[in-house]
Design a protein around this nucleic acid. Structure first.
Lengths: 211, 211, 211, 211
DNA sequence: AATGAATGAGTATTCATTCAT
DNA sequence: AATGAATGAATACTCATTCAT
């Protein structure tokens, strides 16, 4: 904790209590289902106190989202160093993601959810954060191409999106929605799928598409 | 019994008017943003009439969702016949999906949205419908393996989920969220990605993962 | 009651119950002191019902104000016919005003209150209604000049405003604030004052002002 | 005891800072629109400090009102010396009042507003202060009668109220509500009106009232 | 069967006031 | 004495649902 401390920082401070309670609620429920009253109760502060630290419910949502996004991006970026192969990096990312998901409070749905939030103002802000994530992945793929690990004819943008979908929807969906346990072999299978595709090279099946 | 003497059948019957209006609204907005009043107005019936046919807003949502899911599954299953190659079938599915998305009224977010709806009761119901979809895809992939179009070591479950994710987040996300125009070549690129993976077979990069 | 009747008119209708309760409350209290809950309770309707007929608290205030203003202007204008002398008309106006004040429900403070309402949007609307009143009085004074009842050198605008003030603050203030009983002779004295001034013509006192 | 050792006296003392800020705010806005937070901010003291000097928002309003009333009564009473004629004194009062109104921050609405403030407890207190003002004016009129400047048959009470109304409603209303510029000739016209009335003595019009 | 007027539970937000420091 | 973080009572407004006609 630095000298820059003011009443809005420090261990045990109200702001943090509120934010954590809010994250907890927003991860569990729709924006409209979550109530300030419930957040205040869970944070063990008065209702008015919430508004001392956050100007509105939307603001609180934004901060909650940001909190999650930052946590994720951070655990993500630690893999974006050049030591390992790109494939290994991707494996690490998926594994980390899975671990984050399994740690109870970090379902990260908030971050990956493709659902337009329909709070007009939040929408573009959410998209911006998602784009940051996508950019990180895209860069990783470009690096893979530079290193000849990834084919140069791969559509970088699409591959990035597919990798994001793999993490968000497939891994996320299995853990969060289907409440499944993903084992090591599943992960390896999944990455293998992403890396090698599903096609059987020994057959000419794929050639049939020629339209 | 004719269409005229049973209010639950026939062209122009109230139930259908209401359901179509509801679908229209729910596709456009959050559950909490949609109001019964607005649905009734659009359906050109009285507010009370909505409750003659649907027991609650949730019930109406369920039915709306089901209506969309059925429409989608149907347009989906028409591709699940054995005439073409599996790869071509997948191409057709993606194309159909894209077309459905582009038809304004059928964003189908409702269906693909991975977000737990958190209307507790809807949740499991939604998951069941999604599972039906997943099963259809899984069967398709199994067929591909039988026909030697798809490698036999592919994790069928994972491949199915990734394909669904591909449709949902990549295609859906691009059209709905980013408002991009996806061209033919993008689709082909995307499917190629799914089919062939991103890995460069000529390098030994992927071998490094051996943990 | 005409054929134009809809659910918003007719004896015993909710709208009227609400409006009367609102007038009652607004006459008694500040805009901010009055609550919708209390109005609903007094009108013996549900809180939501208020919003069936009035779009907002401000709207309800506007309508309440208008209701009072109309009642006053109407009882006012019946004196603005040319039968009697202007002085008699003025006497009638003051008398009517006083009677209206004494009838419990029509303190009319709402109308005469000089206090800027400070609900920005209401402000100009209120001023407009007040101006209508002032115009009526000004016309009356002009007529008096035409008929040689009133001196032609009188500042019509000022005289109109003073007459309005006379009604508002003197009569209104006495009844409402001081809870006094104004008798006939007071009224006559007041009008005489307005008509003849206070100056003693036999003294040259007023000449001293010559700046 | 010096100004420095008693927080309730001396230049720059907190109480005065707060009071002046409060006056400023109350002159500009409704009681309910003004907030303690804003007053504290403008006074450059902590919110809690306000409560060191004033027991409640109402108390602070009372004191603010009193402060204004005293200022007004004072500038008023300086005219109530016997040097000039009564008519001249009245002219001076109106002029002073007008000047006070034009000095931006002193609309004095607070003082003249006839609206029952309906902070029940304030009501009677306000009336008392207004009565003081009225008494001053009444005395002036009595003096005028003694000096034969004013007719002896004038209803002193009524004349006092009318003169107050002239200042408050006519002059006040024009400056504050209608945002008009009152020129010298208007003032002269207004006082002339009050002094001589509007009636045309050469006609028998007023005689028609004989009830 | 169809309606829509009536309802009140539910929610974000404001702000005077308190009190520990 | 001075402060301002914490509080919760209070309030406008929304909307799913009911029910008399």
């Amino acid at each position: 904790m630095t000298a820059a401390n003011n009443h809005k920082s420090g261990v045990g401070n109200k702001r943090e209590q509120i934010l954590l309670a809010a994250v907890d609620q927003f991860l569990e429920n729709d924006f409209y289902k979550v109530t300030i009253t419930e957040i205040a109760k869970q944070a063990e502060v008065g209702k008015g106190t919430v508004y001392e630290y956050f100007s509105s419910k939307e603001d609180l949502f934004r901060e909650s989202f940001s909190f999650c996004a930052d946590a994720y991006l951070q655990s993500f970026s630690k893999h974006l160093v050049d030591r390992s192969s790109v494939k290994q990096t991707m494996k690490d990312i998926i594994t980390t993601h899975l671990e984050l998901l399994k740690e109870n409070r970090s379902k990260l749905n908030l971050l990956f959810n493709e659902r337009p939030l329909n709070l007009q103002e939040l929408q573009s802000w959410v998209l911006k954060r998602r784009q940051e994530l996508l950019d990180g992945i895209t860069d990783l793929i470009k690096k893979g191409i530079d290193r000849d690990e990834i084919r140069s004819d791969v559509d970088v943008e699409m591959a990035g999106r597919l990798f994001l979908a793999l993490n968000c929807i497939v891994v996320g969906g299995m853990v969060v929605l289907d409440d499944l346990d993903i084992e090591e072999k599943h992960l390896t299978g999944l990455l293998d799928l992403f890396w090698n595709g599903i096609g059987n090279l020994e057959t000419p099946a794929q050639d049939k598409i020629s339209q």
